Amino acid sequence: MKVVVTGGAGYIGSHTCKELAKQGHTVVVYDNLSTGHRSFVKWGDFFHGDIRDMQALRSCLKKYQPDGIIHFAASAYVGESVINPGKYYSNNVGGTLCILESMREEQVPNIVVSSSCAVYGQPETLPIDESCPLAPINPYGASKFFMERMLSDFSVAHGICFTSLRYFNAAGCDFDGEVGEDHEPETHLIPRVLQAALGMIEQLEVFGADYPTPDGTCIRDYIHVCDLATAHVTALEQMVSGGKSNCINLGTGSGFSIKEIIRQTEKIVGKPVPHVIKARRKGDPAELVANASAAQHLLAWYPQYSSLELIINSALGYMTANR
């Protein structure tokens, strides 16, 4: 396949580009480098552009004539979305609309979209399967919900085939250390736990220890980024081979609390993780764990690297090599 990866210079996007190249596909990274890294573009051509710039998008699609798009170029912080919702509706919703319109104009038939468990909001039942009501409780989740609605409508109207992958918490890094998790500022839990353990930050802030969970801290389903990359590539391969549109959860089916991650990190690093308990953040559900049986059935996808030990060790390896 020939694949345009929007946001391909970012965390999950760069890992997916590596997996695409590993499987023999041709990669084109489309990124405005607002949060991505030019140094992460290692497995294909680079096209500098914003997803809200339809002229640039169409120029890229016209030049490369891809079999499909894998779309990662979205803003992705729950807390920021509550404070600045306009950014999320502009980039995630407006940007995705520009991608779909450009696909229609340039006759690109397939798209895999990075969605989120945030579309479910506070789930009524756990683990979460795809039949659970979509009721996002923050602007980030709402923006992903609207993205999925547009995918469905463009599929009906214009025949664009889509797979929306609703995944839970991406974590870990490339085992070869070629790319990794490198955000500025870093807000994701596992790298911040490691930063606290290594003395790179003074302490970890834990937002809420009074949730209705066994130890009071939030529980999340963590998936290794290399497992996520494999799922995106497989989803696009299936659509190019004639597969149907779907919305599919990606997860492990089990979760870890923040305190469990702190304890496991202390065990691996051999140092304490200084931390302080803060008030809850708005928009954070107590527990999010996936039922990933549809991914197993539809994609033959099973996470191989998503044990907490492998996730933390791979993240630690990248962080210590790039301090």
Rank of each mutant, 00 (worst) to 15 (best):
N169W: 00
I219L: 09
S143D: 02
L165W: 05
G68Y: 03
Y318A: 09
S306I: 05
S59A: 15
G86K: 14
I268E: 01
H37W: 09
S254K: 15
D31T: 02
F162Y: 12
Y211G: 04
P66M: 10
C173S: 09
K278V: 12
V5E: 04
G251A: 02
S75W: 06
S257V: 00
Q195P: 03
L310A: 13
F162L: 07
Y305L: 08
T320I: 11
G13P: 03
A286D: 11
A73N: 09
G177P: 03
Q304R: 12
S90M: 15
A118V: 02
N92E: 05
T6G: 07
P133N: 13
V269G: 02
E130I: 10
P66A: 08
P185Y: 09
L310N: 15
I219S: 01
E105F: 03
M147D: 04
I258G: 01
N110V: 07
T125L: 12
A235M: 02
H71V: 03
R166K: 08
Q296C: 12
T187C: 12
N246L: 07
I99M: 08
S59N: 12
M200L: 15
K278G: 03
Y222W: 06
S116Y: 00
L126G: 09
Y140R: 03
V233F: 11
E101G: 13
G13N: 03
A170H: 02
I12M: 09
E148Y: 01
C247I: 14
E309G: 10
H37I: 04
G79N: 11
C132Q: 13
K259V: 06
I223W: 02
